[in-house]
Amino acid sequence: MSVKLTTIAELEDKCVDIRENLLNFIYRIGMGHLGGELSMVEVAVALYYKYLNYDVMDPHKEGRDRFILSKGHCSETLYTIFSDQGAYTQDYMVEHFESLDTYKFGMHSNRLKCPQIEVSAGSLGHGLPIAVGYALGARYRKENYRVICMFGDGEFDEGTNWEALMAGAHNKLHNLVAILDKNQLQMTGNTKEIMNIDPVADKVKAFGWNVIEIPDGNNMADVCAALDQLPERDYTKYDAPTFIISNTIKGKGVSFMEGNHKWHGGGIGKEDLDIALADVAKMRKA
């Protein structure tokens, strides 16, 4: 069984573990997307350790909540959580990371290789339309689970998201939850300068979604306060789907990565790793 945590302090502490393991993992495999992987840690930890009806040790269990990571380039955060919850050792993940015909883990995830991955991802703007279909399919099959899809704010430029916003609201998909990891940076710079998505809350509200804003998506109390507001799982209900805007910092926890778009993708050297680990250690409260 996956570990479940209840208190804010436990979840905060877990975020430090995950950041440390993630940094070590990226150091060992030589590639990753640390900026976005670090920005999403609090929401991912809250989901996997508290809010999702999900057990990484029984990944295809009937009735489980479905979490779809549309920003597939940030899969290493999920792998690190699966590892922490007992599905794999880090050594195993390193051995099977992009290891040609024995691979189970990749920079972009493959559901057929890693069973904890619900949807193979990598190409942006795919998660939300799939999540819409998933929620429709669950309703048709009278199954009571949440479909939760997380995507990035750079990714939100893709037009398919807006098609899915229409379809999700049009079909009143009560059990559908979208989470925007709004870390304000994309590959080459600030989203506001590259393609401004704001005022995103107003836009999504206008599409007919129930919008919940997390003031600080790297603050566990804020994250839990938002996720506590998720409506009960009820496939019989025809109601507005939920859209969570998680305001985060790209590279959160590592001084030289925070707010620096240059840490969007790549590996990390030993010297940087040591500084990063020291920075992250300071986040531990207990």
Binding site: P129, G133, Y134, A135, Y140, A164, M166
Partner: peptide, 26 residues
Amino acid sequence: PERCFNFGIAEPGQVGASAGLALAGN
């Protein structure tokens, strides 16, 4: 009607959602 879903004029959204419907066991 409960098993038929109209996606309007939005083929990428329709095909993506079709994949989701299939992943849900259909």
